[in-house]
Write a protein that binds this DNA or RNA. Structure first.
Lengths: 340, 340
DNA sequence: GTGAAAGCGCTAACAG
DNA sequence: CTGTTAGCGCTTTCAC
């Protein structure tokens, strides 16, 4: 591993000049710059980030904290963030909280404090007050994605509007008896997403004069399995079966489609289904949905951080746009069966 | 951010003693150890990993390179590795290659070389010779998981045995016409997994005197969608329909189950299906499978690295066991329909 | 434009 | 057992 001294020797310059030439900070003559460049490539020199960090206080590394890895939303946001960081020359240090308990504590008590990161991205995190305090005490740029972090700039789609859009799609098709599979309110400590989606759903109904029927709501856990079970409840009794279901996530929507099939109902002829996300599997199942774009969200989180870390660099100007979402109509929604 | 000097001052000791007390290397009196401990907690001191790394040459950080994030196997291995690293006091720096092209190059040309990692875990990576060279030139411990890395110690289940076990389960139920949905050989540059599973499949058949019929093989891409399409081919023609399908992954197995349903076939009455993985969704679909345990694989990869990084520490003794796999019989397999 | 020199915060001999 | 000291490899004043 060659050091900056080796490059300096080979180029016949001082380490100071090499440093300036390589980093672009400070003035260096063209000639020197070229000598440095060729010496560096000849030796295969790469700066030691530790030494550099120690000297500058900047690490070129950001920490990303996620509650789970093996879920589509998280891993997709992560993917977007990773590639954006990479192209900015940053590394990504991953902290996964799914281990829980002691592991989780040590992330906040030790790992994040090691001066190893310049900033933190928190994906859909619900933190205890203590954890939040620790995080804020780092006094580093933090941005949340899709989560409810008080005191932290957070990127999140407009859940009310998204739910409203999905519901309006069903209403526009002529549906009047629409069920909603949403989140379980209790379990989600101040996690507003499920609530917001329900609010949007009900707002859409009320806007056309329909009073939301509590029997047309089922809580579930955002998984296929959970959606399946909830949908069986809703679709099971022919007496008051809705003609359409709005699921608060695509996974629950897919569960709903599978439940419908198992009940002998055809989708969309007997029951229409729409979700939210545009999950990997949704296209395959033909599930209509309101897409959100998690990779983009990860990328935007990085842009925000870069802006804070390098106030000089011009941003790409996309920063203050709100997060996009988009209705995608596939084959799981159509007008209600005749006579309903 | 307090420094080691602050702790030394407060404890009335030298920085050297503080360092020794905190790291556990070298002898320190009990009294001193206690003074250091309380001073450190009082100040909320956490070592600067950069300074420490610079001084020792060890970073307490390992790089993990993955080809994708949003796939169950990768993210689950990652999860296992992350939590094992955390409990060893290590950070995890993530490099995701799914961006391709330039991004991929820079990972190997720059990022991994920054002296930021002590070791590398490569998950299911297929590298070009150049990339492999770069990796080996790091001269750091490397372990592969589930991939075909020549020259690198690699953790991988016995794919031949796994496939054989799955096939034998079907044979034991009485099936004699069994199809296999496997990998597309061409696209997978020296990636032996699909081949090995096919070999195991055929070996099981031959062991009971059945000659593998090329018409009973369909290549696919390991996704639900791919499995669905392939299964439609295989199950579509009633003339030579198999009574069972062995899919080389659970996702393809699920695709097969869905295809069967769409063809009006009942699983398992008309056709049995078995996969490999024990994917998140398999339980829900009732898919019989041969489970592998990716989180455990990630964890073992870490154990191997720790053994190399700290030859003194005693290992947990699980190192030389081969990777476990296990037949899980659910509701997608039963004996063949009467008369077949 | 360039170089000398002083650290960044920590660890590891080396003495005592 | 503990303190002194010399770096780890780089960046950044401050002179020239």
């Amino acid at each position: 591993m060659p050091s900056i001294q080796d490059v300096a020797d080979l180029a016949g310059l001082s380490t100071a000049t090499v440093s300036r030439a390589l980093s672009g900070n400070g003035l260096v003559s063209v000639a020197a710059r070229e000598r440095v460049a060729s010496a560096a490539t000849e030796l295969g020199y790469v700066v030691s980030s530790n030494a550099s960090s120690l000297a500058t206080g900047r690490t070129k590394n950001v920490g990303v904290v996620v509650p789970f890895l093996s879920r589509w939303f998280f891993s997709t946001v992560l993917e977007g963030a990773e590639s954006a960081l990479l192209s900015n020359g940053y590394d990504l240090t991953l902290y996964n909280l799914s281990g829980g308990g002691e592991e989780r504590r040590s992330v906040f008590e030790h790992f994040l404090l090691r001066k190893r990161v310049d900033a933190v991205i928190a994906i859909s995190l619900e933190l205890t007050p203590v954890e939040l305090t620790r995080l804020l005490k780092l006094d580093k740029p933090i941005v949340g994605v899709g989560g409810p972090l008080t005191g932290v700039r957070t990127l999140s789609i407009d859940d009310v509007a998204v739910a409203r859009l999905a519901t309006e799609h069903l209403l526009a098709l002529g549906h009047r008896t629409i069920a909603h599979i949403g989140g379980n309110q209790d379990s989600e400590r101040d996690f507003h997403l499920p609530t917001n989606r329900r609010v949007g759903f009900e707002a859409a109904l009320e806007a056309v004069g329909i009073f939301p029927d509590p029997a047309m709501f089922q809580p579930a856990d955002f998984t296929i399995q959970g959606g399946y079970t909830a949908a069986k409840q809703i679709l099971g009794s022919p007496r008051m079966r809705p003609t359409a279901v709005f699921a608060a996530s695509d996974e629950m929507g897919i569960g709903t489609m599978l439940a419908a099939r198992d009940l002998g109902l055809r989708v969309p002829e007997d029951v229409s289904v729409i979700g939210v996300d545009d999950h990997q599997l949704s296209e395959f199942f033909g599930l209509s949905t309101v897409a959100q774009f998690p990779a983009l969200q990860g990328q935007k989180a990085v842009e925000i951080l870069m802006e804070q870390l390098h106030p000089s660099r011009r941003t790409h100007g996309t920063l203050n746009t709100s997060l996009p979402y988009e209705l995608i109509v596939r084959s799981s929604t159509t007008k209600p069966p005749a006579g309903r």
